[in-house]
Design a binder for these strands. Structure first.
Length: 264
DNA sequence: ATGGTGGCACCGCCA
């Protein structure tokens, strides 16, 4: 039987190579008491996944990798059932998607294609990939189901989600076509859980390596997201961006995004 | 800035 109240802390983190940051990751998971972390850009093939390292720390592991790029994983204190790892609109073999069933909710972890250049085939692929997510949810679920969708969405949804909206409007990651595609998924039945708790701007999850002192200069983008259907959003109690993971000796260019939930 | 950094793969590609 469930305890009367159960608190679960869920995170999303584009880790940009799991193996070079696995020790920092585990230290942070333990320090922030993270129950479930969804990772993107693990950049590790399944045969090289650091299974023993995380299992020894008490995590269940669900991962799909490929050589050199992409790659996705969920580490969790409780076990899950892997439902699917093939996005219908995705290129076969690209490790960008996984759907897991936990006791109280479904968790969908995605690494949305970056898009590269507006108007390119990769950009079209990104738009179709996002619209494929809408179709995926519509085909398998109802908006009244308990679903968390999180990951690197590679889209800043609104002008307060980017440091220079006027200058960057129309750029990859802040383009009206991307925003419309993402909005189509949201309109199916999601709420931006971070925004529910933190309505102010200048809250970013991504800082380009190539921009000198980007964190200090607040030159960031909010492109990582943690969304929930209505019933999940109602159970959320807080959300924050763990910017301390950007001050490490070897930071990712993304920071983890966290949300807490209390189940009654 | 035709730039800059970082990771993995291999000697370029991707972000």
């Amino acid at each position: 039987m469930l305890k009367p109240m159960t608190k679960i802390k869920i995170a999303s983190f584009n880790i940009n190579s799991l193996r070079v940051r696995q020790h920092d990751l585990l230290a942070w998971l333990q320090r922030d008491k993270i129950d479930i972390v969804a990772l993107q850009e693990t950049k590790v093939q399944d045969k090289d996944f650091p299974v023993d390292f995380f299992q020894a720390a008490g995590y269940h592991l669900y991962y799909q990798g490929e050589k050199g790029k992409n790659g996705i994983a969920v580490l969790s204190k409780s076990p899950a059932v892997l439902l699917d790892h093939k996005n219908p609109a995705g290129v076969p073999g690209e490790a960008r998607f996984q759907a897991l069933q936990y006791e109280r909710f479904t968790l969908v972890n995605t690494y949305v294609p970056q898009g590269r250049e507006v108007g390119s085939d990769y950009f079209t692929y990104k738009i179709n990939w996002l619209l494929g997510m809408r179709d995926y949810f519509a085909a398998h679920y109802k908006p009244s189901d308990a679903i968390i969708w999180l990951g690197d969405f590679n889209v800043a949804p609104t002008p307060i989600d980017i440091y220079a909206p006027d200058k960057l409007l129309g750029s990859v990651g802040f383009h009206p076509d991307e925003q419309a595609a993402l909005e189509a998924v949201r309109a199916w039945g999601f709420e931006d859980i971070f925004r529910r708790h933190v309505p102010t701007g200048e809250q970013y999850t991504f800082f380009d390596y190539r921009v000198p002192n980007a964190v200090k200069r607040k030159m960031g983008w909010r492109i990582d997201h943690l969304w929930g259907t209505k019933c999940m959003a109602a159970l959320s109690t807080e959300s924050y961006i763990a910017l301390d993971q950007r001050t490490l000796e070897r930071p990712s260019d993304h920071a983890p995004l966290v949300a807490s939930f209390v189940f009654h």
